[in-house]
Amino acid sequence: KRVEVKPYVLDDQMCDECQGARCGGKFAPFFCANVTCLQYYCEFCWANIHSRAGREFHKPLVK
């Protein structure tokens, strides 16, 4: 058996893009583990950032 640990998915993290400004101060539910991102995102910022060319295939890690 093999266990994969993702220590970078933490609870209670603010969106790295808007710092809570676009999501009413809620914590960010998404983390993008792609090396070009490596950031936490609220729903609004995830949709906005990941609609751009080259990022549309990134998969979010959801808390």
Rank of each mutant, 00 (worst) to 15 (best):
P7Y: 03
Y40G: 03
Q39P: 01
E43F: 05
C18H: 00
Y41H: 01
A21M: 06
H50A: 01
A21N: 11
Q19T: 10
H58S: 02
C23R: 06
Y41W: 03
C15R: 02
C45P: 00
E17A: 07
G24F: 06
F30L: 11
G54R: 09
E17H: 12
K63P: 15
K63T: 09
I49G: 05
R55I: 15
G54M: 05
I49H: 11
A28N: 03
C37W: 00
A53W: 05
G20V: 03
R2Y: 02
D11T: 05
I49A: 12
F30K: 13
V35F: 08
E43W: 07
Q39F: 03
V5D: 13
V35H: 11
G24H: 05
K6M: 11
C18K: 01
V9K: 12
G24Q: 14
L61K: 14
Q13F: 05
C45Y: 00
L38C: 14
C45K: 00
K59Q: 10
C32V: 01
G25A: 07
G25H: 06
Y41K: 02
F30C: 04
W46V: 02
C37G: 02
K59W: 03
K63W: 03
D11M: 05
T36M: 09
F30M: 11
A53N: 15
R52E: 14
C42D: 02
G25I: 02
S51R: 15
Y40R: 08
S51K: 15
N34F: 04
L61M: 12
C15S: 03
L38H: 13
A28E: 05
Q19H: 08
R22P: 03
A33Q: 14
A28H: 03
N34G: 08
S51V: 11
C18L: 00
E56R: 12
F30N: 09
F27T: 10
C18E: 01
N34A: 11
G20N: 03
K26H: 08
F27Q: 10
H50Y: 01
Q39V: 12
Q13V: 09
R2A: 09
Y41V: 02
R55G: 07
W46I: 03
N34K: 08
V9P: 10
D11W: 05
G54Q: 05
C15E: 02
M14P: 12
C23V: 04
Y40L: 03
K59C: 06
V9M: 13
N48M: 14
F44S: 12
V3E: 14
L38G: 12
C45Q: 00
L61C: 14
C32D: 02
Q39G: 13
F57P: 11
N34R: 06
T36P: 10
G54N: 15
L61P: 07
R55D: 09
V35P: 15
K6R: 08
W46H: 04
E4Q: 09
L10R: 13
E17V: 10
C37T: 00
N34H: 03
F57I: 08
E56C: 06
P60H: 06
K26P: 02
A21Q: 07
V9S: 13
G54P: 12
L38F: 09
L10Y: 06
L38T: 10
Q19M: 09
C42R: 00
A33V: 08
G54C: 06
P7T: 11
K6E: 10
F44R: 11
K26Q: 08
P60K: 15
R55V: 09
V3D: 15
Q13W: 04
V3K: 15
D12W: 06
C37L: 00
W46E: 01
Q19D: 10
E43D: 10
M14F: 10
A33N: 12
A53L: 09
H58Y: 00
H50K: 01
R2P: 12
K1T: 11
W46A: 03
C23K: 06
N48Y: 08
Q19V: 09
Y41L: 13
D16W: 11
D16Y: 15
C42M: 00
E4K: 05
G24A: 10
A33F: 04
N48S: 13
H50P: 01
C37M: 01
C18I: 00
P60E: 03
R22D: 05
A28C: 01
K6G: 11
C42A: 02
C42E: 00
R55W: 13
R2C: 05
E17S: 10
E43S: 12
M14A: 09
D11N: 11
D12F: 04
L10Q: 15
E56T: 07
V5M: 12
E56M: 07
Y41E: 01
F57Q: 15
